[in-house]
């Protein structure tokens, strides 16, 4: 009933409401073109034939659940490896990155910026190249093997490349900056005076870390572990270069199915299952970590 009265006033207001959508438009278009459409194509591809009972004469399409279940059941080991390696790499990266980020945030003084550049310096060379370099470092002519040899921990017959350990080492190394930077930014934001206050209130250095520093850096821990875990689980380069046939991760399988075997249906189904599992893990993790501060 007051529509007629409101209309002249409403005009500038409606423009104000439209503004955010306008700003969102380029991003939305990007997402629709390069995310939503490919995903839908992927889902469609994943059912364009029945994986379990493949019969080229009928050309029957498969069902969602049938195909996904089939893809999962036939590749349980690579799936499991992906998540175990990614988890191990994430934990190792966390153990290395936390002290590093802490040192840069609180102790580096005027070297802060230099150290931050050094953290991202590996990105100046290609991912593949760095992983190949790791193969050299861990190889029989490399320093790590030499050292272990001198310590009599390995023999000339053994090798440390082409193993699960090497894959995990490669993953931890390659994704270390993704762990370090969010950790650094959340540690950097901590007011050092709250740490002083903690010391003033009878907490020793360790208790201060446990009760103040760590909880305040939790958003960084959550962000860093996700940024490491997700790409590490989907990675195939490290397993390809540093692993052996029994360390294949799901990324390797998908890669092979798409590009070598050309079984697009299986590759698409595997990709979709992988995505669903990752989303489930992330949602569970975020809800447990309970960090509204994350966003």
């Amino acid at each position: 009933m007051n529509a007629t009265v409101a209309s002249p006033v409403k005009k500038p207001r409606s423009r104000k409401i439209a503004m955010p959508y306008l700003l969102l438009l380029p991003g939305m278009l990007w997402l629709i073109t390069f995310f939503l459409i490919p995903i839908l194509t992927l889902v469609k591809t994943s059912v364009n034939m029945d994986l379990a009972n493949y019969d080229p004469t009928t050309g029957a399409t498969g069902s969602f659940w049938g195909n996904f279940w089939y893809a999962f059941r036939t590749h349980e080991a690579p799936f499991a490896r992906s998540f175990i390696y990614a988890l191990a790499a994430t934990l190792i990266a966390l153990c290395i990155a936390y002290p590093l980020a802490y040192g840069i945030a609180f102790k580096a003084g005027r070297w802060k910026n230099v150290l931050l550049v050094l953290v991202v310096a590996p990105f100046f060379t290609s991912f593949i190249l760095r992983t190949i370099a790791w193969k050299q470092i861990l190889g029989q002519q490399g320093p790590v093997f030499r050292l272990l040899l001198d310590l009599h921990l390995v023999t000339y017959q053994s090798h440390i490349t082409a193993s699960a350990g090497a894959v995990i080492a490669g993953l931890s190394y390659n994704f270390l900056p993704f762990m370090t930077l969010p950790l650094y930014s959340s540690l950097e934001r901590i007011d050092p005076r709250t740490l002083e206050a903690s010391g003033d209130l009878y907490a020793n250095a360790f208790t201060t870390f446990r009760k103040v520093t760590l909880p305040l850096s939790l958003p960084g821990v959550v962000a860093g572990t996700l940024l490491t875990f997700i790409p590490a689980a989907g990675d195939y380069v490290n397993a390809e270069i540093l692993g052996n046939p029994s360390t294949t991760m799901i990324g390797n399988v998908i890669n092979a199915q798409f590009l070598r075997t050309s079984n697009y249906t299986l590759a698409a189904a595997l990709s979709f299952v992988f995505m669903v599992i990752i989303i489930a893990i992330v949602l569970f993790y975020i809800s447990r970590a309970g960090t509204e501060e994350l966003v």
Binding site: D191, R193, T194, E196, A197, S198, D200, L201, V212, P215, L216
Partner: peptide, 14 residues
């Protein structure tokens, strides 16, 4: 045996 009321409060935000 000393406690301080800090000029900038320095309360624990979490």
């Amino acid at each position: 045996p000393v406690n301080t009321v800090f000029q900038n409060y320095a309360l624990f935000p979490h």
